[in-house]
Nucleic acid binder design. Structure first.
Lengths: 150, 150
DNA sequence: TACTTTTTGTTGCAAATGCAACTAAACGGA
DNA sequence: TCCGTTTAGTTGCATTTGCAACAAAAAGTA
């Protein structure tokens, strides 16, 4: 049957669980790696966009970011032209963790894709991107209170 | 780049978020649908297996199941041959929710797979199953304290 | 300009999540 | 049989998560 979403859920929870356990020795608590990598890859990003990227509630992102700042891994910088937004930038300590996180992700990716040919791996990525794109609209709409009919 | 896992994470969080919001009107709180569907599909399953299926911590499953029982959606039944285990069985009220959950899932699946040909959808499912299988071992091992080298 | 709406960010709760640590039954050898 | 190990379940505690509700700056509109 069409168990695509169930499989995706299982994979996501398993890998998130692994990452959280493995990053504990980097003093990163649950979920923090998600935000830190994104801020490293897109320095100056604001909280709202970050939440949208990661697909997490705005307030959850707010607190994760707050904690990253408290722990000295990022800073919130005022924008010269916009008093409302705060640009998120990794500190040196934050930047130093980036390659470690990436290495772990690469390892997990290797494990996940074991036995798949290059073509299969590429095809999988293409399809996943399309699926992600397909659901982004619904996520946004439902989050904002829209009722879906089904 | 090999962003497979990131895409999977985004998709999983977005869809979980949607489901949690939509099932609120069924009086199901966060995550409960995950457990209830599985118990409906495999009545008599025990907590430990359930956690393994869903890829969630044993104690998290324990409390979710506890809540499902409190809310009258499942019962815990003693096994005649094994005093330790408790078999989880949906009540009539629990069973009644099953088709509603499935309908929502089907809708989300339709949205997610929109624009994919039948061949692509089937290929995606095959690949996801292999990926899930690939990582199950690591999840189990890391959960039990094993350190991965990378 | 004055106004409405949207965007961005925050805080107060209540709930879920998961690690530690603990029981007790079941299992697996000597 | 006895005894160590694994399996299954639970509770305490700290943390994360997210919905409501709010504030204030920015953007859009008349």
């Amino acid at each position: 049957m069409r168990d695509h979403l169930r499989e995706i859920g299982m994979i996501a929870r398993a890998l998130d669980s692994i990452s959280n356990i493995e990053f504990k020795e980097l003093e990163l608590t649950k979920g923090q790696y998600l935000y830190l990598v994104r801020i490293c890859e897109e320095p100056g990003i604001i909280q709202e966009k970050l939440a949208e990227l990661i697909k997490v509630d705005r307030t959850t992102a707010a607190r994760a970011v707050q904690k990253l700042e408290t722990n000295g891994l990022i800073t919130k910088q005022d924008d010269p032209h916009n008093k409302k937004i705060k640009r998120l930038v990794p500190t040196e300590r934050g930047k130093a963790l980036y390659p470690v996180i990436i290495r772990e992700h690469e390892h997990s990716t290797n494990v996940a894709l074991a036995g798949l040919s290059d073509q299969e791996a590429e095809q999988l990525l293409r399809l996943l991107k399309r699926v992600r794109h397909n659901i982004e609209g619904d996520w946004d709409a439902v989050k904002k209170g829209k009722k879906r009919d089904y």
